[in-house]
Design a binder for these strands. Structure first.
Lengths: 154, 154
DNA sequence: CCCATGTGATTAACTTGTTAAGTTAATGCC
DNA sequence: GGCATTAACTTAACAAGTTAATCACATGGG
């Protein structure tokens, strides 16, 4: 593009040096490593996140689970249906509040996640080794700082 | 969850302290700031990315555009259709290779992006002010380092 | 020239993201 | 109790992510 066409442009950062795209590319680069193993077990990343969050705190309502696994409520509704059909999770109603669902791993679900965990942990260790433990910790800390800084809005 | 149930678990990092989730949450936190303005102009984030990449290098084939805007080819096909229907971009064929498309902004598209650019730049400046210019630059540099480290695979 | 093979782009099918609207249950006020 | 409001999901509709399949054109042998 010629300089003469450039002058009347409002300043916008070069796309590749912006937070939204850098974060997207970083995430994609990382997920590439996990996708083949998840796919070989007919898992999507989101389903795997839901199972892992359930493993950590073994009975949650849908709102807490959605927040923990970083999926929106409508997505979670569909994911729950899929995982329940597969027998990996179980549902019941909160007796004190008929709206609220209670979601937990089934025995099959526990077995499933323990079976995949070593692979998953192995891939993560590989990434850690490639990137460097120190750099990875720094990055995680800075990402949290970014989130905390922006979260309560202005 | 009780300690006795904990012991036979294979080690998996706590979900919130992992790259995939931290990157996802960071991106979501950032995009929250942009979504209202894009939505008010009937733009999706992806469509906006495509337009911005086109603005930077004003005639691209689909493969290069997809790489630049970080969308997969099938998504780009749909986005192109939508943007063309709206008159924001123009298509032609590469005369030397009938498979290859050539995609560029239309005059309307140029006008549209220049009209939104100040808002977009303003939001980004707000983020920069909140997070801190130095921290943001550091983060961008580290994200690029991460991508470079992981990109050529093992 | 014909065919095999490869490449650029699109289509198909399914899952998820995203917003809006709908359902059902709880709560608060009169 | 009756009624509006809020809360927790769920459903709907459309855009995009993801993988596989397909189409159209290019290219390199034979």
């Amino acid at each position: 593009m010629s300089d003469s066409a450039e002058v009347h442009k409002v300043s916008l950062a070069r796309t590749h040096r912006t937070l939204p795209i850098a974060l997207l590319r970083a995430r994609e680069t990382v997920m590439e490593r996990f996708r083949p193993m998840l796919h070989s077990h007919d898992m999507t990343e989101q389903q795997w996140r839901v199972l892992r969050v359930l493993r950590e705190s073994d009975e949650l309502d849908a709102t807490a689970l959605a927040a923990g696994a970083c999926v929106l409520a409508p997505s979670l509704s569909r994911i729950i249906k899929a995982l329940e059909d597969r027998g990996l999770i179980e549902l019941s109603r909160d007796p004190s509040d008929g709206r609220r669902a209670k979601i937990r791993l089934s025995d099959t679900g526990h077995a499933f996640i323990e079976r995949l965990a070593p692979e998953s942990a192995g891939i993560y260790k590989e990434i850690e080794a490639t990137v460097g433990t120190a750099r990875l910790e720094t990055l995680l800390t800075e990402l949290e700082a970014l989130i905390d800084a922006l979260k309560p809005d202005t």
